Amino acid sequence: MLKMLEAIFAGKIATENIDTTGHKRLRGELSCGAGCDGCGKCAEVCPVKAVSVEQGKAKIDYNKCLFCGKCVEACANDSLTHTNRDKLAEILTESAVEVSNAVTAKLGRSLHVRHLDAGSCNACEFEMGALSNPVYDLHRYGIAFVASPRHADMLMVTGVVTRNLEQALRMTYDAMPEPKMVMACGACACGGETYGSTYATVGRAADVVPVDIAVPGCPPRPSAMIVALCAAADMLKEKM
């Protein structure tokens, strides 16, 4: 800890500007080019049925998508490619203003979040753990995780909802005061198809509680989570 503080004061660890564009190797939002002939090979190989062919072109359900790249590998014409952008169009619309500036503008609007793992593999939790480190520094946006749902404005759900935790999810949501919001974080919570249909799972978070905002990815990047949380802070203000 002392070495980390020394590195921060020495300027060796810098807080990252938050945006929706990652490393050039990031498997982000898919782009379907003009060469797509609607052959359907991408849909055949998708393990979670996130790809379909409509009007002769591939269509992606990002709530289910794992960003595994199998559809890109199967594309015969190389018309389906990954970009290095997070799929967050429903959360933050594109504009001339830089995303980092838009996110910084949320400063001063606090948001208290209660996290509930409904049955995840813990990949989303690893990324969430990075939110509080000096690189992402979630607290600079007035956003903090709380221990009790009675103190929370938002419920952040990760993992496919298991039958053992369905009741816990409902009770946590019911314990939250109004106004309240729910964020589904990751492909399991957003789409519910990651583990298929089994006796042990209920499905996605929206099958149990009303979801206001979804962050796709397996797992989503910390930056994508922060953009979504800051957008939620504005949405919460509108509910009040």
Rank of each mutant, 00 (worst) to 15 (best):
R170K: 15
R170F: 05
R170H: 08
M171E: 15
M171Y: 11
M171Q: 15
M171I: 12
M171N: 14
Y173W: 15
Y173F: 15
D174V: 10
D174I: 08
D174M: 12
D174K: 15
A175K: 11
A175G: 03
M176N: 14
M176S: 15
P177Q: 14
E178R: 14
E178S: 15
E178W: 12
E178P: 10
E178N: 14
E178G: 12
P179M: 10
P179L: 09
P179W: 09
K180V: 13
K180L: 13
K180Q: 13
K180D: 13
K180G: 13
K180H: 13
M181I: 04
M181F: 02
M181E: 07
M181C: 11
M181T: 09
M181R: 13
M181L: 14
V182I: 12
M183V: 09
M183K: 06
C185L: 15
C185D: 01
C185Q: 02
C185Y: 08
G186W: 04
G186C: 00
G186R: 01
G186T: 00
A187S: 15
A187H: 01
A187T: 05
C188M: 03
C188W: 01
C188N: 02
C188T: 00
C188I: 02
A189T: 01
A189I: 01
A189H: 02
A189S: 12
A189C: 08
A189D: 05
C190F: 03
C190L: 11
C190H: 06
C190V: 05
G191N: 05
G191Y: 00
G192I: 04
G192L: 02
E193K: 11
E193C: 07
E193F: 06
T194Y: 13
T194W: 00
T194R: 07
Y195F: 14
Y195D: 07
Y195A: 10
Y195E: 09
Y195K: 06
Y195T: 10
Y195I: 07
G196I: 08
G196E: 11
G196Q: 10
S197T: 08
S197E: 07
S197K: 10
S197I: 08
S197G: 07
T198E: 11
T198N: 11
T198L: 12
T198A: 13
T198S: 15
T198Q: 12
Y199L: 07
Y199Q: 07
Y199W: 08
Y199M: 05
Y199V: 08
A200V: 03
A200P: 03
A200T: 02
A200G: 00
T201H: 02
T201V: 01
T201F: 05
T201D: 04
T201W: 02
T201A: 03
V202P: 05
V202D: 08
G203V: 00
G203R: 01
G203Y: 02
R204H: 01
R204Y: 02
R204F: 06
A205D: 09
A205K: 02
A206M: 09
A206E: 14
D207T: 00
D207F: 02
D207R: 03
D207H: 00
